[in-house]
Structure formats: structure tokens, C-alpha cells
Simulated assay, not measured.
Amino acid sequence: MTTAQGTAAPRRRTAARPAKWLSRGVIQVFLLVIGLIWLTPAAGLFLSSLRTEEANASSGWWTALTTPGQLSLDNYTSLLKDSGIVQAFWNTVLISVPTTLAVVVIAALAGYAFAWMEFPGRDWIFLVVVAMLVVPVQIGLLPVAKLFGALGLFGSIPGVVLFHTAYGLPFAIFLLRNYFAEIPKEMLEAARMDGGGEWRIFSQLVLPLGRPAIASLAIFQFLWVWNDMLVALLFADNESQPLTVALQSQMRQFGSNIGVLAPGAFLSLIVPLIVFFVFQRHFVQGIMAGSVK
């Protein structure tokens, strides 16, 4: 009886292997199909940006897969000669990068203070920060515009950066505070017993442990600011407008001019894609961190 049971067990394990491989293969095929569907609009936009306006008007972008001779870089050459588009691209960089850095740095400091430092009114102040999460961005547009006008910041890149930073901080502080609070208390107490001050504990212990959450926050913040048009449409003038506003202006002037809009839209799209794929490992770690703590 024992021998029969011992023989049956390896057989069940052997029979389970093909089923496991099959299920894994089905999942991989499913994820591949989802990935292709997700990338199809980006691929279509890229191919449209490489075709002439006449070709785009007469046939769909997928015809370029069978007749690649219609593809050229003429649209990008013309686009890069447009000083307005080039300036708008650099304006977008000058808005997105400082905003992301400011939000991450301030939120990390505030998140550590709310999680591990004792000071009067800490919990009440944190409740106020959480309450600000429910305030729609549209509510603050008009009063902040009046304030920026009085301060001389309206219609400038610093004004747009300041607005994005202010409205990005509540969620960023909430996220990092909750993540830092999951760090074992014993670890911080041991660091303090070794003579470590608050700044040393924050910079050498908390920041390395919080890298996944910080990276996820940086990706979210960068993508949100890079793709924003509402705030920039109101707070930026013609000299400081980002790429989204410049493309919207081009659409208003030239209508359905795909030769201008397609390469400009793909230029606006490719940077967030590169940022996401470069930092996707940290992004996944940040998403999964809360489920394993």
C-alpha cells in the first residue's frame, strides 16, 4: 500500500507539470495580447508621424506595414525647425522636472516627520493634509490665479511649477507617510541608540528603505505634470506654455494637419513612455510593497 502511494505521488507531480506549463503559457499569451493592444495607439501615432499628410488622408497608418517606402523623417525635420514647438518642449521639461523633484523632496521630509517625529498638533495637521485630497483642482484655479497675479507669478514657468507642487503635495505626503510608518520601530530605535540624529536616520535609513515608494511617486507626479494641459492653459503665457498647450494651439490654427500634430503628439508621448519603462522595476516594487508588509 505504501509503495503504491509512493509511486502515485511522482506520477501526479509529473502529470501536473504540463498543466502548470500550459497555464503559464496561457497567462503569458494573454499578457502579450494586452501589451500589444496597449501599444497599438502609440504605434499608430508613430507611423502616422512618419507619413505625409496626403498618405494619412488617403489611407490608414497600418498600410505603412506593407509599404514602408512611404515612411520618412520629413515631418520631424519640419517640426524641429518650428521654434515654438521646440521652446514648448523645453518648457515642459522645465516645468515637469523641478515640480517632480520639489514634490518628492518636500513630501519625503514631511512624511518622515508625520510618521516618526513628535511635535504639537502633528495628527491634526496630518488630517488637514488628508482633507486637502478631496479638494478638486478646479476650485483653486481662480483664487490662485488672482494670487499669482498679485505676486507677479502669473503667466510664468515658476507659477506653473508652484501650482503643481502645491496640489501634488497632499497625496505625496499621504503616500510616503503611510509607507514610512510601516518601517519597524525597533530599527529606528537601534539607530538612535547608536547615536544617529534625525537627519542621519532619514537620509541613511529611511530614504533607502523608501526607494520603491519614492520612485512610484516620482513617476506618477512626472507623468501627471508632463501630460497636464488645464493648469498650463490658464497659468502659462505664450512664452512659457508647455507642449500640450502648444499642440492644442496648433490644432486650433491648422485643424486636422496630421503632418504637424502627429510628430508633436508622439514627441509628447515618447518621454513618459521612456520614463515609465526605465523605472518600471521601482514602480512595481512600490505597488507591491504595501501588499507584503
Rank of each mutant, 00 (worst) to 15 (best):
1 M>H: 12
1 M>K: 12
3 T>D: 14
9 A>F: 14
10 P>I: 09
11 R>K: 12
12 R>F: 13
14 T>Y: 12
17 R>P: 01
17 R>N: 05
17 R>I: 14
19 A>D: 09
20 K>G: 10
20 K>C: 06
20 K>I: 13
21 W>L: 14
24 R>C: 06
27 I>G: 04
31 L>S: 09
32 L>N: 05
32 L>G: 10
33 V>H: 08
35 G>Y: 03
38 W>D: 10
39 L>S: 10
39 L>T: 06
39 L>I: 10
39 L>M: 14
43 A>W: 10
45 L>Q: 05
45 L>I: 07
46 F>Q: 02
48 S>W: 00
49 S>T: 07
50 L>G: 00
53 E>V: 06
54 E>N: 06
55 A>H: 01
57 A>Q: 08
65 L>M: 11
66 T>P: 00
66 T>G: 05
67 T>L: 04
68 P>H: 04
70 Q>R: 06
71 L>I: 03
73 L>W: 13
81 K>E: 13
81 K>V: 03
83 S>Q: 14
86 V>Q: 02
86 V>I: 11
92 T>Y: 01
92 T>K: 00
94 L>N: 02
98 P>T: 08
99 T>G: 03
103 V>P: 00
104 V>E: 01
105 V>E: 07
106 I>G: 03
107 A>M: 07
107 A>S: 15
107 A>K: 01
109 L>M: 15
110 A>C: 14
110 A>M: 12
113 A>I: 04
113 A>E: 02
116 W>H: 15
120 P>E: 03
121 G>Y: 07
127 L>Y: 11
131 A>T: 07
135 V>G: 07
142 L>N: 08
147 L>I: 12
147 L>K: 01
155 G>Q: 07
157 I>M: 04
157 I>R: 01
161 V>T: 03
162 L>M: 11
164 H>W: 05
165 T>I: 07
167 Y>T: 11
170 P>G: 06
170 P>R: 05
172 A>P: 02
173 I>N: 01
178 N>M: 09
178 N>G: 11
180 F>H: 02
182 E>Q: 15
182 E>M: 14
187 M>A: 11
189 E>I: 03
189 E>S: 07
190 A>I: 06
190 A>Y: 06
192 R>W: 09
193 M>Y: 05
195 G>H: 05
196 G>I: 00
197 G>D: 07
198 E>F: 04
200 R>M: 08
201 I>R: 01
207 L>W: 04
212 P>Q: 08
212 P>H: 06
213 A>K: 00
215 A>F: 06
217 L>W: 03
218 A>E: 02
222 F>T: 00
224 W>Y: 13
225 V>Y: 00
226 W>I: 02
228 D>Y: 04
231 V>D: 00
233 L>N: 12
236 A>L: 03
236 A>P: 00
237 D>Y: 09
241 Q>I: 04
246 A>R: 03
247 L>G: 01
252 R>T: 15
259 G>W: 02
260 V>Y: 02
261 L>I: 15
261 L>W: 01
262 A>Q: 05
269 L>W: 05
273 L>I: 15
273 L>C: 13
273 L>P: 07
277 F>Q: 10
278 V>L: 15
279 F>Y: 13
